[in-house]
Design a protein around this nucleic acid. Structure first.
Lengths: 133, 133
DNA sequence: TGACTATGGTCTCAAAATGAGAGCAGGGTA
DNA sequence: TACCCTGCTCTCATTTTGAGACCATAGTCA
């Protein structure tokens, strides 16, 4: 059994206790960083600290509401820190914490995979639709 | 500039064209595999092929509706293949395709990260809540 | 015969998450 | 006076998800 084939057991680590799967550490963490926006902002902040408005302009298709919420969730998880400068109007800067930076490395593997295989996935999607029609 | 700090540019690869960000290959791919259930089933199927009912029992907190849909999406993207056996009642088996298997490796990095740091994240969440109160 | 099992789904309706857009404080600028 | 800028929050509509009933088929038990 290769190391990869054991991945599933990591998800099931807590399956013994009630609601164990929902509390599984891996799912717990991946549910957050695997949402629609988190990885994108972690990548942007990995480049350099950004202000709120910079992030909004960098990702025009997020609503301000979700941007606020995503940043707060990342902050809550200790991946991002928030710094308010008492200028007028006040400006707010977001940065990766060391914990957030440590995520850049494994994330980069996933991104490399996506770059390498997105053509194959597009082909598969086309194929699938052709068969459905 | 380290390799990791350039991650953001991969997301922005298509920012030049209209709606480029939404069509960005990386976001396109990560949006799918980063949903609430996909990584979990890819991991399970990485262990061995599973039947529909096995997957449902392995993940009791998914609704049958979402299980069906998640599997169909993975199949559409060419990560999972579906095999129907004409028994009575018919049984259906799902397996990873080679493309799906190639995802196990980068995924394992992320899972290792989650295992390593979930304690820190829980601590951060507790800290955050304490400050809010 | 009738009730019940199991399989892999679909359909409908309610609940939850998200998007769109307005509003807000508070000082700057014209 | 009127308007801009910042980083939000609030409300309401749309979209996504969850819960649960329903379906066809055939076997099993009484």
């Amino acid at each position: 059994m290769t190391e990869q084939s054991r991945i599933a057991s990591r998800f099931k680590a807590s399956a013994a206790v009630p609601q164990g799967l929902a509390n599984c550490p891996v799912r717990n963490v991946l549910d957050q960083i695997g949402d629609k926006w988190s990885t994108l902002f972690i990548s942007l902040l990995g480049e350099k600290p950004h202000r709120f408005g910079e992030l909004r302009r960098a990702v025009p298709d997020i609503s301000q509401r979700m941007l606020t919420q995503t940043l707060r969730d990342l902050q809550r998880d200790g991946l991002v820190s928030r710094h308010v400068y008492p200028t007028v109007p006040p400006s707010v800067e977001y940065r990766l914490t060391p914990l957030g930076q440590s995520l850049l490395e494994p994330l980069s593997h996933l991104i490399r995979w996506a770059e390498t295989h997105h053509a194959a996935i597009r082909t598969a999607r086309g194929e699938f639709q052709r068969q459905a029609a």
